[in-house]
Amino acid sequence: MEKFEKQIKRIAEGKGFIAALDQSGGSTPQALLGYGIQEEDYSGEGVMYRLMHEMRVRVMTDPAFSGEKILGVILFEKTMNGFVRDIPVPDFLWQKDIVPFLKIDKGLQKIEKGVKLMKEIPNLSERLKEAKGKGIFGTKMRSVIYANDEAGIIEIVKQQFEVGKIILKHGLIPILEPEVDIQSDEKRIIESLLREAILAELDKLPSDQKILLKLTIPEEANFYTELIQHKNVMRVFALSGGYDLDRAARTLAENRGMIASFSRALLEELKVDQTSAQFSKVLSTAIDEIYQASLT
């Protein structure tokens, strides 16, 4: 079986979850702060990214971080281009039976019609060709819904699918991520409109084209079952969206067929000054909790 086919089978059928190690420029200082590194502790973008890469390498090389419970990892572009023990990151991950993805969006536009669309992604085709050449299996791109505005929700879903079709043409599997803000008072109504908008776009896809979805854990358990079972959906991931690990895992476990794709909830208790044993214990505990929640 060829590598790509093995990776498809792993993502579509494997037991486990997706780890998101894709904090980009805007969110990196906050991620480092959570890890215990203050902004005054470093100077310049280069040092900031080096510290972030060192944290990610520490996570990826930990014995607990293995293909036994982790199906895939979403990478920031600089991480994709980096190395672990002199091995390119995507190759290192696949050696551990972990499928590499790449975050490709370039941030969000200003809010309009209750949503933040993705900014234009420059040189998209070139970036996709490069990612494919480096062993990347798929991509991820995020946009956010804040309010109950049907026109905005339809627009955000259309944008996700339009870019997703380009990604499919380059032989990569897209993760579409129209996040619903967990703070919205209209979250339940938004999710209903979002589900219908996604179904409308899915039904336009050829039967042989499959995508991945990454969605905020819904207010109503099993609300996305129709998406999970759709012939054009390989799998549906859940984002933690700002929930702490316990709440994210507890609510995810109520949703059959959804598996986690957590970032903050996975890394929230890791600290730079922990010993190797402490770090590994904390990471292992988080991985176990997320894995168990993803088995339902």
Rank of each mutant, 00 (worst) to 15 (best):
I37R: 02
K271A: 15
Q109M: 13
F76G: 02
D208C: 07
K119Y: 10
L117I: 08
T251Q: 14
V73H: 05
D22Y: 00
I182P: 04
V282L: 10
P63K: 13
E40Y: 08
Q30C: 10
A200P: 01
K134L: 15
S143G: 15
I18G: 11
G46N: 15
K271V: 07
Q292W: 08
I145K: 01
L215R: 00
L33V: 05
R56F: 09
Q30W: 07
I111S: 14
I145G: 00
P90N: 10
K96W: 05
K271G: 07
I121H: 01
E254R: 08
A249E: 10
L21V: 06
A197W: 00
Y35G: 01
E126K: 14
Q292D: 14
G242Q: 02
L202K: 12
G34L: 06
Y291G: 08
Y146G: 06
L124I: 13
V180Q: 13
E179C: 08
I290W: 06
P178Y: 13
S207I: 14
Q160L: 02
K165Y: 08
I287H: 00
D105E: 01
D203A: 12
F92R: 01
T61W: 12
L215W: 01
L21H: 06
I189W: 09
R247I: 15
Q160G: 03
K9P: 04
G25T: 12
I166D: 14
F223Q: 12
H230C: 05
K103E: 00
